[in-house]
Amino acid sequence: MTHPDPMSRAVAARRHAAGMDYAVLLSAGERPLALVEFWPRRMWRVYLFDDRSWRVQMIDLKPHSTGMLLAHRNVRWQFAGEREHASGKRDVQETTTVSADGQVEVRSEVAGPRGASTEPSRAGTSGPFPAPVEDFLYPVPEFGDWQVFAPLLAQQGHEPAATIVLNDVSVDEGAGPLRATGIERLFSPGACDAPDGPGVVEPVDAGLLRITSGRLAVSDPGWIDENARGVAVPPGEFPVTLSLLRTARETGVAAARVTFLDVPPSEWDMLLRPDEDLGLLGEGQFYGVGVDTGTAAFLDATRRVTEERLDEDVFLPLDSEFSVELPGTESEPNLIAFRAGRGDGSYPVWIGRTDEGQVGCVVVDFQLRSADGEK
């Protein structure tokens, strides 16, 4: 019934209009009834809860040629007890699929005997058989029109009243998207507080990055084409600095910076792609560089790397080093890769600008510690 980072109605409405995902919890008092998820491509998913507040059913709805939503998949789960529910061990899973023209197929899977070293399941299928497709169609809701999903509650034995009144739980707009506070302190040497206890910040030189095209890219080196975030910068060679965070538990790369002007930034901007809108983010959220190989890199936007070179010249050296330079030819720019915090995930990238709006530096914060000095 609670969420650590609830989204305000205003943010959800903007995400709805932009076709971006969000979720709505429908509840009565302290009892959850349904979790409604809005997905890209105007699809919806509804989870239903039983009297024990267990999530026991999932209904997927997609646009239909009639202009309505088709409940094309309906999955029900049965659990032997609370322990099995908590661990996701289902005794029975029944899946009903409905085609666009009303052909229905039902598949049941029953778990094998308990206590066996392996638990094979038995499956059975019935259908397909015809049914009126109208029985599976629902109106497409406008934002806030959650009563569209009320009839689905009857599938769990709930009986909606003749008049349904939905009241929004108040959620403040909050402070908005993640803010760049104290980024400079990520590179200040000395003692600091970290989630794992006392730590020490140690800035280290990671080499000179050569920019030839006038555009910097920040990316997982294994996914440059799909993942890179870019910004216009002057050509030349520029120092890269890593901020190492040493604690009793481990040493990790807390942040990485490439410096273009030896001038303290007067403001910080999140590095965005053209199609990204800060107004669609909830409190503390950010658009970041995605990491899927445990590695991030600064590089010229024109630089590409073959898979063979990545394995031999980047990933293997990073097993024992915090950073590695992948040299280029005389005319080809280099690449500087480094370990990404504690591994895969998404990390904010900040542009430090001068009073004149020039790019003074670019920083990737791997969020191993709070940049504003708080624990």
Rank of each mutant, 00 (worst) to 15 (best):
P4F: 07
R9F: 09
V11C: 00
R14I: 04
D21N: 07
Y22P: 03
S27F: 14
A34Y: 09
L35P: 01
V36N: 01
V36L: 13
W39I: 02
R41M: 09
R41E: 15
R45E: 12
R45D: 03
Y47A: 13
L48C: 02
F49L: 01
F49N: 01
D50F: 03
S53V: 05
S53T: 05
W54K: 00
M58Y: 03
L61E: 00
L69N: 00
L69W: 01
L70S: 01
N74R: 12
N74V: 11
W77K: 07
Q78I: 09
R83G: 11
E84Q: 14
Q93P: 05
Q93G: 04
A100C: 08
G102C: 06
V106Y: 05
R107D: 10
R107W: 02
G112H: 09
R114H: 10
G115L: 00
T118W: 12
T118R: 15
P120G: 14
G124A: 12
S126P: 05
F129H: 06
P130M: 08
P132M: 08
F136I: 10
Y138T: 00
Y138H: 03
E142R: 07
F143L: 01
D145Y: 06
V148Y: 02
Q156N: 15
G176D: 05
G176H: 09
P177D: 03
L178M: 07
T181K: 10
I183P: 00
L186G: 12
P189K: 14
P189E: 12
P195D: 08
P195E: 15
G199I: 03
V204K: 14
D205C: 04
G207E: 07
R215E: 15
W223G: 08
N227W: 10
V233S: 04
V233I: 02
G236H: 08
E237Q: 13
E237F: 04
T241P: 04
L242P: 11
S243R: 09
R249Y: 04
R249P: 00
G252T: 13
V253S: 09
A255G: 10
V258M: 05
V258F: 12
V258R: 05
F260E: 01
L261F: 02
V263A: 04
P264Q: 08
P265G: 04
W268P: 02
R273P: 05
D275H: 15
G284I: 05
F286L: 07
Y287L: 03
V289C: 07
T302F: 10
V305D: 12
T306H: 12
E307K: 14
E307A: 13
D311W: 08
L318N: 13
E321S: 11
E325F: 00
E330I: 06
E330S: 11
E332F: 06
E332Q: 11
N334I: 05
L335T: 11
G345F: 06
P348I: 00
V349N: 01
W350A: 02
W350V: 02
G352R: 03
R353N: 13
T354F: 06
G357I: 14
V359P: 02
V363M: 07
V364A: 04
D365A: 06
D365T: 08
F366A: 04
R369A: 05
A371F: 08
A371G: 05
D372C: 06
G373W: 11
